[in-house]
């Protein structure tokens, strides 16, 4: 077990290094440069060259990479060319927002999808299953940019249950923070519910065909016990793999919801930074997101070994 995890961790370090290079190169592939944003479109070529030299952007790419990565290792991610805000600070304030959005949306998604799948998998193609399956199919067709405005119109504007925009950090006021997070979190949860429900349902249905389920029935165990103790765990592989990918996509992938609810999360910050060619901000956020993604996959791999003891051997 430990050897297996150590091996995976070693792979992750290599992956992280490769990602840092790719992130750096991708940013510099973007057409244009930050001088246009900083100096405006009508400044002279001379001034632009001066600014480029001042920002160190006239050096060869490998030198720029080296300067950046050595600062990263000493904990300094640089600052925004435009606002001069430190990249570390942008991430420190933005990351909790993304994290909270993910937690709210995923907790709700699992809390809805898992019981629903456990309930309908035992009744395939009965009315309750057909309703749930069709319903989640509908959810899948509703992207957050459709759901979010509807939620705002109904729950914020009409019913005034939740604020339409704004964000209070958890440390300032936990109750307000959670209250603020509910609508944007729910706007992100619909697709996850649909995906998790459908995967778990179909895996459960195939697990229920297994001999060991018949064996469990032959012991006189109740259906509920069989679902929870015998069928659920071996049916969670697709679910966990999909959750890993899905949560990864939500990391800094929640721009639309952050924009609609006026939250400065990583998703919002990186889109703005890309428009402004704010290289260090893009690189910093992309690197942090990539590392978080890699850690997430590591957690998923670890969960595989928890769920199925055979995984360590393979």
């Amino acid at each position: 077990m430990l050897a297996y995890l150590a091996k995976r961790l070693g792979q992750l370090v290599v992956v992280g290094f490769i990602i840092s290079i790719l992130v750096f190169l991708l940013v510099h592939l973007l057409p244009g440069d930050p001088t246009v944003v900083i100096l405006g479109p009508n400044d002279t070529a001379h001034n632009r060259a001066l600014l480029l030299a001042q920002l160190g952007l006239n050096k060869p790419l490998y030198q720029q990479y080296w300067i950046w990565i050595s600062h990263v290792f000493s904990g300094n991610l640089g600052e925004s060319y435009v606002t001069h805000e430190s990249v570390g600070h942008i991430i420190a304030t933005g990351f909790p927002i993304d994290l909270e959005l993910i937690i709210v949306s995923q907790v709700v998604a699992f809390a809805v999808a898992i019981p629903l799948a456990l309930f309908t998998a035992r009744r395939p193609n009965r009315p309750v299953d057909n309703v749930a399956t069709t319903g989640t199919f509908g959810l899948l067709a509703l992207p957050p940019f459709v759901i979010a405005p509807v939620f705002v119109a109904v729950f914020a504007v009409a019913l005034k249950w939740f604020p339409a925009t704004g964000y209070t950090s958890f440390t300032t006021d936990p109750a307000t923070n959670i209250h603020d997070m509910i609508l944007p979190g729910l706007a992100l949860t619909a697709a996850s519910i649909a995906v998790y429900y459908r995967l778990l349902r179909s895996d459960l249905i195939s697990t229920l065909q297994e001999d060991f389920i018949t064996m469990a029935r032959s012991k006189g165990l109740s259906n509920r016990y069989i679902m929870m103790r015998h069928a659920f765990r071996p049916s969670t592989f697709s679910l966990m793999a999909a959750a890993g990918v899905n949560i990864g996509a939500l990391l800094a992938g929640t721009f639309i919801v952050e924009y609609l609810f006026a939250m400065n999360g990583l998703g919002y910050s990186i889109v703005v930074a890309v428009q402004q060619r704010d290289y260090l901000v893009i690189q910093g956020i992309a690197l942090v997101v990539a590392i978080a993604y890699v850690v997430l996959q590591f957690i998923v791999d670890f969960l595989f070994t928890v769920v199925d003891p055979r995984v360590t051997r393979e």
Binding site: F212, K219, P234, D308
Partner: peptide, 25 residues
């Protein structure tokens, strides 16, 4: 009622113990 009989009074040995034992329990 059957579940009270199954396993307690009447039990079954399956053909293939690899598939009839739960692999993750």
């Amino acid at each position: 009622q059957l579940r009270q009989v199954w396993g307690a009074q009447l039990s079954m040995i399956f053909q293939d113990p690899m598939t009839a034992l739960n692999p993750v329990v």
